[in-house]
């Protein structure tokens, strides 16, 4: 893995230039200037927007402020998806910066999970790590870790510390050589044209004949009818092991975005 560090770094430090604008219907004491931020693709919206909140609260009265949430062109943004997934899913065809609208009232209860504190994000993050490890190693690696190891993963993400995160995450990405791969590949195919948020199934890294599966194999099996596009665009012939190790989000899920409108 040491040789791959450049790729890991490039993925980790991917940024999306974003312009946050206050929703027009919010009551303010004076005009709110937009706020610009480089968002880390691998993180969560509610984890990296403290500054955005502070900026807009300066022009608002406390009694007009409820839980903050984000919207892009009429779609509430699910904070529990990695930022890179949200961008690829909703906005990748548009010009930069990504223009996000900030709301402080009318929280969309039927669309978004509440995010009252960072501990909720941490619980969500750990739950994703655990689920991915259930697929990769029958939960053995994550269960063998100590509480402080879990904390290290989370603190690495929270504080944007690449080395801290990967020192621990590499354990979750390893497997015994004789087994030749993970039990199953943790992946999610996100869909733009469906109520169902994503597809997630069991998929082995190798075929019964022992050949390494590729990304193209997965798409063929899971989603034979639709044209697909991957957020990070690895070649479809890329072997799974490398794709997963390099490109998965810190939640350990490889995320593939599927556009129902035939875009490629």
């Amino acid at each position: 893995m040491a040789d791959d560090k450049d790729v890991l770094r490039d993925v980790w430090f991917g940024r999306i230039p974003t312009c946050f604008t206050l929703n027009q219907d919010e009551v303010t004491e004076r005009e709110a200037e937009p706020y610009y931020l480089l968002l880390p693709r691998v993180s969560y919206l509610t984890l990296v927007t403290d500054k955005v909140k502070k900026h807009f609260l300066k022009v608002m009265r406390a009694e007009d402020v409820e839980e903050m949430w984000f919207e892009y062109e009429g779609t509430p943004l699910k904070w529990h998806y990695p930022i890179g997934v949200l961008f690829d899913l909703h906005a990748s065809n548009n010009v930069l910066p990504w223009s996000i609208t900030v709301h402080f009232k009318n929280f969309p209860e039927h669309d978004l999970l509440h995010c009252p504190s960072n501990s909720v994000i941490e619980a969500h993050f750990m739950s994703s790590i655990k689920e991915a490890d259930a697929l990769k190693h029958k939960s053995q690696v994550v269960n063998d870790m100590q509480k402080k190891d879990h904390k290290q993963l989370w603190m690495g993400l929270q504080n944007d510390k690449f080395d801290q995160f990967w020192a621990m995450n590499r354990k979750l990405m390893e497997y015994p050589t004789e087994e030749g791969g993970f039990r199953y590949i943790p992946f999610r195919i996100y869909q733009t044209m469906s109520d169902r948020p994503f597809i997630q199934k069991l998929f082995r890294p190798t075929s019964p004949e022992g050949n390494a599966h590729t990304l193209g194999d997965l798409l063929k099996e899971m989603y034979p009818d639709a044209l697909t596009n991957d957020g990070k665009s690895p070649h479809k012939g890329t072997r799974w092991v490398n794709t997963l190790r390099h490109s998965s989000y810190p939640t350990a899920y490889l995320s593939v975005i599927s556009f129902g409108d035939g875009r490629k």
Binding site: L113, S127, E131, P197
Partner: peptide, 24 residues
Amino acid sequence: SPLDTITQQEHPLLGQPFFVLHPC
């Protein structure tokens, strides 16, 4: 227990917020 057993999560088929008893 170490993990809060009831949390709010996205329903994986409906995409809406639901409460869930964690299966781990």
